[in-house]
Nucleic acid binder design. Structure first.
Length: 231
DNA sequence: CCAGACGTTGTT
DNA sequence: GTCTGG
DNA sequence: CCAGACGTTGTT
DNA sequence: GTCTGG
């Protein structure tokens, strides 16, 4: 986790849920199968004005010191345990914490060496939520090209993803924030006092998981059925 | 010292 | 940019 | 998963 | 066709 998620809400719903202004020209298409390396909406704080803004960024963080903006699947997630020490994330976690709007995500349960069963996971009440994320700004020194990228933080699994008894879906899960914590997650903070205490497994009783078909794994598939099956 | 890494999860 | 390993 | 590679020899 | 890297 988390290598695939979905966002079926339109920009009006996103604007309301995250109390953010969205320019009229800003288009977001609902997607039931969001893959790494694609452009996705991200909520961040403009430190100059103090206002929240919604911007499109590429999923897969490129560190500012990288020589080239080479696609890397290894930075689509950042482990909460290593946020402050890893070279790729330790600067971003100080100054560039963000929210990634989502309606659900997928987990592939390992049934055998070559068998998996994908599940969709979402909030019980169907409401939109936010992954805790980091973003980074990469500049090409020669072409002046700018590229903004983001990563989704992962944490320990909760009782739904990794039950004491019953089938285990996975050993990690994305960090999900309660709306009450959005402000504190994004607000400027003393680097010695980062709000990493918010990155705990989300309340399992408020979530549900259900089987979906293997078509979820194919990025060319993008229909509501992907996350609704067997609900 | 200099070169090389710097990261994580997924997959029938 | 900065740390680590050789 | 999907996209892309898949190989060897010679040579100042 | 089948393996590898992303």
């Amino acid at each position: 986790m988390c290598g695939r998620y979905y966002l079926r809400s339109d920009k009006q719903r996103i604007a309301e849920a995250f109390r953010v202004e969205i320019p009229p020209t800003f288009d977001i298409l609902p997607s039931y199968n969001i893959a790494p390396q694609t452009m996705q909406p991200v909520v961040r704080l403009d430190h100059e004005t103090g206002h929240r803004e919604l911007v499109l960024m590429r999923w897969g963080l490129i560190p500012f010191w990288a020589k080239e903006a080479k696609i890397s699947y290894s930075t689509i997630n950042a482990r909460v345990e290593t946020l402050t020490t890893s070279a790729a994330f330790r600067e971003a976690v100080k100054y560039r914490r963000c929210l990634i709007p989502a309606d659900g995500f997928y987990e592939w349960q390992h049934l055998g060496p070559k068998t998996t069963q994908p599940y969709a996971v979402a909030l019980r009440d169907g409401s939109m939520f936010a992954f805790a994320g980091l973003w980074e700004n990469w500049n090409d020194t020669t072409t002046r090209e700018r590229l903004e990228t983001f990563t989704i933080i992962t944490t320990e699994p909760n009782e739904l993803i990794h039950p004491l008894r019953g089938p285990i879906l996975h050993d990690r899960m994305p960090a999900i924030l309660a709306p009450a914590d959005y402000e504190r997650w994004m607000a400027p903070a003393d680097p010695a006092r980062l709000p990493t205490d918010l990155l705990r497994p989300f309340d399992a009783t408020r979530m549900s998981a259900w089987k979906v078909s293997a078509a979820v794994g194919n990025v060319r598939n993008d229909s509501p059925e992907l996350c609704r099956e067997a609900l």
